[in-house]
Computed example of a mutant assay.
Amino acid sequence: METPDHILVVDDDLGLRELLDRYFVGHGYRVTTVANGRQMREALANHRIDLIVLDLMLPGDDGLTLCRNLRANQSYDIPILMLTARGDEADRIVGLEMGADDYLTKPFAPRELLARIRSVLRRAEMLPRNLAVSEKARLFRFGEWKLDTAGRCLVDAHETVVSLSGAEYRLLRVFLDHPHHVLNRDQLLDLTQGREAEVFDRSIDLLVSRLRQRLGDDAREPSYIKTVRSEGYVFAVSVEALQAPS
């Protein structure tokens, strides 16, 4: 029998924690609820967590800080769905750029949150098992570039640092983990964005174009990311994954 996915809810609203606990358990999930960043770190140290529901407004370290710290820590590549009472577009964008996988504004219906959680978990599990992410790699070397996974940035042959947006980083990680493997647009959209209400058919093409610009790749004759007609894209150069020191 499969072990149910384990959801960690981080929110300082006790009533909401209790409501989500009952609701998610009723739909077959394991649930742990905590009120702040310190308790979140304890839960992560003691449990295998499959997804974090993280409130933006928390006492002490806020949700953006916690999200950024989790994404900088290679031990935790856990999907994050961020909650906030704010409707500010800037907060949503910053949260996604920090590495959140989805975003929902309070108040919300538990059914909508559950649907988003299921979507995020599907994206996390959609790649075949032989396409696992290289979790322990600190640096990837390819062509004239290196990707620093801790700093989430590119470094060229002259040690010049090139910043990446959250979506650009996630797309490049997918390519670097699966070089010479054709990935279609639907896979790439789900793995890098996954917010169905906000994507459109060619948005992955725009993201690939932006990443090519970061890499200095000629769109007419690209060396790194090649277009495979009617199929998708393939990362066409060899990649060396360097392990982080133990």
Rank of each mutant, 00 (worst) to 15 (best):
M1E: 09
P4C: 08
D5N: 14
H6W: 04
D13S: 12
D13V: 12
L16I: 12
L20N: 09
V25H: 05
G26F: 09
R30G: 05
G37M: 02
L44Y: 01
L51P: 10
D61Q: 15
D62N: 15
D62V: 05
T65H: 07
N69P: 01
N69D: 15
R71A: 10
S75Q: 14
S75Y: 09
I80D: 04
R86M: 05
G87E: 14
E89G: 08
V94G: 05
E97P: 00
M98I: 07
A100S: 10
T105L: 11
A109I: 06
L114I: 10
A115M: 13
R118T: 10
A124S: 15
A124R: 15
E125D: 15
L131P: 04
K136P: 04
K136I: 03
F140R: 04
R141S: 05
L147A: 01
A150M: 09
A150H: 11
G151L: 09
R152K: 09
H158S: 11
V161F: 09
A167L: 06
A167T: 05
R170G: 05
F175R: 00
L176W: 04
L176K: 05
H178W: 02
L188F: 03
R195D: 15
V199K: 12
D201I: 03
D201F: 02
R202D: 00
L207W: 13
R214A: 02
T227G: 04
S230P: 01
A236L: 04
E240S: 12
